[in-house]
Design a protein around this nucleic acid. Structure first.
Lengths: 350, 350
DNA sequence: CTGAAAGCGCTTACAG
DNA sequence: CTGAAAGCGCTTACAG
């Protein structure tokens, strides 16, 4: 015999009373409750989750799906770890658990997601790396399961999401570079259909035009979001007949290999080509030149992500009123050395 | 009505037959099976996992516990992603699912682990970042749940583990440096009690002595396994009165900040101080100088980890016979530029 | 305040 | 080859 039955027999009371005691129901004799709690602790009893879930219709588990790229390194370092930490901070308050589901690269992401949901493994899902058109969003919408995306998408007009402020980063970066005298500013966006690329691209273009500069498609480069991506990017950028004087990165993984690629072609980042990176990855300040980029608190981002999700779950909505379904998360420029660029011929260009 | 009952009613057969058809039991009319399969597909039916688990006493889920460090960046880049991929490759063969449990930094890791196990969330566990004395190992041993560790430990004499070849890396690195003329070779090991530090340290010392060189504790540095760790390491190393001419790193996250720290002190990695890194992280070749380090196939490591775990699970053991409980995973030196060190005064030292 | 019983969604002997 | 029934471990009305 095991489980709650063994515990009840051991205490010589009914399993119902054990359950009520353990679950903090008010209608239990305080003395009985104390005995139950103590016995549970001593015997190492924790209710079986399948039993609970089946009965309650709730798993008390929130899933976080991450995708593993073919080369398993598109994900940026500590990014998800930081977000997980923030998410958990909030979930813990409600005795919810975070479990991470890594979608194999070769598996269809909707099939993978649907299987998780249909099997009843989670009460709600967090998805990331949202694409402009994203089948996962459509599936989750139809399945009527609470979810939130880290990254907006066109596929869910009413969906909840929290996203980084790509517009703000693109705008402030372009404005900063223009103020420094740059006229030919390149942009590196992801080669895949991830939505942030579109958002970043649009804001880059709009800001250039607002600054009276022509948008030149030849200056927009598509880089693989892998660590090696910056190396090819360096080759592409330097092979342009009329080379840009600055480049804006929309992914944090590219900078190291970009530096190296530039260097091999005799071009010094920060001196010959200004570089503004995206996120203030902890590595940024150890690069040479250190990378001008944008800071963000991953933990706070994760907390907001979790709270915005909970606000959409009937059982928790009341605890998180007046919360917007969508939120653009601000990022702040952190000055590094990579855009210390001096124009010898300022005024002759542009 | 929902679940298997709805599906059975829709097909006008019993739920028992639906279940048998779906689970590939042989005693089902092929035509009936086809109807059931088709209806399940069309209606998007997948058996509820709580129901299955409760009845079968098995979850078909393997847990992988990872620890989130306080600063959430001790974990090295793509390392776990690569391992997950390999693990999943094997688990998929057996219709097992991998789920990742991120242990919050502030939570006691044994409590976290015990909760997962006691609630019956998994059939087996994979743990990582094993410490020399590790309470998790002791708990899992006592709980009689199949598990494997990525990293050996003294706490489980009979436990299963797969570990990287720290001895081999330390030995070949020291031998290589000695052959290049180095006599003062420093070592950076983790500041915490993670077992790899001890293993690496012991092998470093043994190899030095085998090469007829004195072991000097002053040359052993304890570095935080965080991205910033190399920066402080650079300060410590360069402040030694009799500076080493080479340094060996036992963690892959330190190199970039070490380079930067050295550079700020006017010391060029690879020219003034030879550096040999640990794992051939995809960043290694983009560093300047590119890092001499050791390659490992993370996917194959993950596959072996999974297979060695399955070999210890009654239900799968027969499929993986003649498999050792423990395995040291080989790593191979990849030549970079960081140990291109030329001795002006070779012969006068040592 | 407590106990007995029902039932969550499945799978699996068992009977036919 | 199929159906009816038991039971996995819980929680929760319900009765007392």
């Amino acid at each position: 015999m095991k489980g709650i039955r063994a515990l009840a027999r051991h205490l010589d009371i009914s399993i119902g009373t054990v359950s009520r005691a353990l679950n903090g129901r008010p209608d239990v004799n305080p003395e009985t409750r104390a005995r139950v709690m103590e016995a549970a602790r001593a015997l190492g009893y924790t209710p079986n989750q399948s039993g609970r879930s089946l009965r309650q219709g709730v798993t008390n588990t929130i899933g976080f799906m991450i995708e593993m790229s073919p080369d398993a390194n598109a994900s940026s370092d500590d990014f998800f770890m930081g977000v997980f930490e923030g998410v958990q901070t909030v979930l813990t308050r409600h005795k919810l658990d975070l479990v991470v589901f890594p979608c194999p690269a070769q598996e269809n992401s909707v099939d993978y997601l649907a299987r998780i949901v249909r099997r009843g493994l989670v009460d709600a899902m967090i998805i990331s790396a949202t694409r402009r058109r994203d089948d996962r969003v459509e599936y989750l919408d139809k399945a009527h399961i609470p979810f939130i995306a880290l990254g907006r998408s066109d596929s869910g007009p009413n969906m909840r999401w929290v996203d980084l402020d790509f517009e703000g980063v693109a705008k402030s970066s372009v404005e900063r570079l223009v103020a420094q005298g740059h006229r030919r500013i390149a942009l590196a966006i992801p080669a895949d259909d991830i939505n942030l690329g579109h958002v970043f691209h649009d804001a880059y273009r709009a800001t250039l035009e607002a600054q009276g500069l022509a948008y030149d498609p030849a200056l927009v480069f598509h880089a693989q979001r892998v660590l090696e991506g910056g190396y090819d990017l360096a080759a592409a950028v330097t092979s342009l007949p009329d080379r840009p004087t600055a480049i804006l990165l929309s992914s944090e993984v590219l900078s190291l290999s970009l530096y190296r690629g530039l260097q091999e072609r005799g071009i010094r980042a920060g001196r010959d080509l200004a570089v503004i990176g995206f996120r203030n990855n902890p590595r940024a300040r150890f690069l040479t030149p250190s990378l001008t980029c944008h800071s963000v608190s991953l933990s706070e981002l994760g907390q907001t992500l979790a709270e915005t999700l909970l606000a959409g779950m009937p059982a928790y909505a009341a605890l998180y009123p007046e919360r917007d379904r969508n939120l653009i998360w601000p990022m702040e420029l952190v000055k590094g050395e990579s855009d210390d660029f001096v124009f010898a011929d300022a005024g002759t260009t542009g």
